[in-house]
Design a binder for these strands. Structure first.
Lengths: 202, 202
DNA sequence: ATTTTTTAATCAATCGATTAATTAAAAATC
DNA sequence: GATTTTTAATTAATCGATTGATTAAAAAAT
C-alpha cells in the first residue's frame, strides 16, 4: 500500500487543477482531497509546481503520439491530412477531457511550465496545419485565395471551441448533448463545404 | 481632483483583471498600480469583488447595445443576420480588446458575477443565432441537414477563437499580423462557402 | 462646522514550504 | 534465521509571507 500517495496525488491534482486552475488550488486542498499529508507534495514532486508540471505533461502525451504518427505515415493528401487531424483531436478530447482547460488556462495565465510543455506542442500542430494548407492550395485542392495563417487559426478554432464551450452551452441548448465526434463530423463538413445551399445541387 | 481614485481604480482594474484574472490580482497590487490607498477599494466598491463586477459590466455594454439593435431592426434575411452578427462582434472586439479574456476567464472559473452578467448575455446571443439558423434552414438559405445547435456553437467558435488565439499564434505565424476585420471576412466566407474548390466554378 | 475622502495600521485567515520526529520496509550483518 | 542498520515514507507542527477586509485617525473639500 506504499507509494500510493504519489499516484493518488497526481489523480487528484489532475482533477483539481483542471477545474480550478493552478493558483486556485492550495496544497492543503490537494492533500485533503487525496487523503494524504501536504508535505508529500514537496517530498515527491519538489513542490506544488512540480506536481502541476507532471500533471501537465501527462495531458500532452496523446498529442505527442499523434504528431509522431503524422510524421511517420503522412496522409495521402491535404484534405486527408485535415480529416485525420480532426479525427485525432476529437479522439484525444475524449480521452483527455480536461486537456482544453489546461491549454486555455496556460494560454491565458502562463505558468513557468507553459514554454516547456504547452507552446512546444502547439507550435508543432500549427506548423503541421500551416504546411497542409500550403500544399492544399498548391495542389489545387483548396481555394486559391485561401490564406494559410487564417485557415490554420480557423480550423484550430472550430476543432477546439466546441470542447471549450460544451459545459457552457449545454445549459442553453434544449436538445440532448452532442458528442464530440458528432460535432467533429459536422464541423469538418462545414469547414470544407460551407453551410450555404449549393446551387449546383438543385 | 476628487473622486479621481474611483476612475483610476476602474481603469487599472480593467487592465490587471484582464491580464491576470480575478484571483491573481491582489488589492494591494491594484492600489499600488493606481497610486491609491488599498482601503479605497472597499470604500468605493464594497470590496475587491464589487470593483470586479463594475469592470465586468462595463465590458458588456457594447454587447447589450448590439442585442438591442438586432432586436429593434432585425436583419432582412438569416444570411444577412449572420453577417451583421459577425461584423458587430468584430467591431466589439476592436473596442473591448479584453472582452474575450473576461468571458473565457468567467466560463472557466466563474466568479459570483458570472450568472448575473456573463451568462445573461451569452444566452441572448445563443438564442439569436439559434433562431437565425432555424429560419435559414426553413427558408432554404442554408443546407437542410444543418444542425442548429451545432451551427450556433461552430459560428461562435469561429468568431471568438481568433481573438482568443491571437496573442498565442502570432508568435508562430511569420507573416504580419492579421487584423480582426480581415479575419472576420475570411472566416465568414469559409463558414458560408467552405474551403474546397468548387467543381461548378471550373 | 460638517461631510467626504484618504491614510497608516492592523485583523484573522490562508498561502507554499520546511522542519524534526515517527513509522514502515528493505538491506546488511551476524 | 534472527538482529541490527539503513533507507524510504509519512506525520503533525510551524515558518514567514501574503491575502481581503476593517478600523480609527488625519486630511481635504464643502
Amino acid at each position: 500500500m506504499k507509494k500510493d500517495a504519489q499516484v493518488k496525488l497526481i489523480e487528484t491534482a489532475t482533477l483539481l487543477f483542471a477545474q480550478k486552475g493552478f493558483n486556485a488550488v492550495s496544497i492543503r486542498e490537494l492533500a485533503r482531497t487525496a487523503n494524504v499529508n501536504s508535505a508529500l507534495i514537496s517530498y515527491y514532486f519538489g513542490g506544488k509546481e512540480g506536481l502541476y508540471q507532471e500533471v501537465l505533461e501527462e495531458q500532452f502525451i496523446l498529442i505527442a503520439q499523434m504528431l509522431k504518427r503524422l510524421e511517420e505515415s503522412p496522409p495521402s493528401s491535404p484534405t486527408e491530412a485535415i480529416i485525420t487531424y480532426a479525427n485525432n483531436i476529437s479522439a484525444i478530447h475524449d480521452q483527455r477531457p480536461y486537456l482544453t482547460r489546461f491549454i486555455l488556462s496556460e494560454l491565458m495565465n502562463p505558468t513557468p511550465c507553459c514554454e516547456a510543455v504547452v507552446k512546444k506542442y502547439i507550435s508543432c500542430i500549427f506548423g503541421f496545419l500551416h504546411t497542409t494548407f500550403e500544399e492544399g492550395v498548391a495542389k489545387g485542392e483548396f481555394k486559391a485565395d485561401l490564406d494559410h495563417d487564417f485557415a490554420t487559426v480557423s480550423l484550430a478554432g472550430i476543432m477546439n471551441f466546441f470542447f471549450i464551450a460544451k459545459p457552457i452551452f449545454q445549459g442553453f441548448t434544449s436538445s440532448s448533448e452532442k458528442t464530440g465526434e458528432e460535432y467533429t463530423v459536422q464541423a469538418l463538413d462545414t469547414f470544407l463545404n460551407g453551410i450555404l445551399r449549393r446551387k449546383d445541387h438543385e
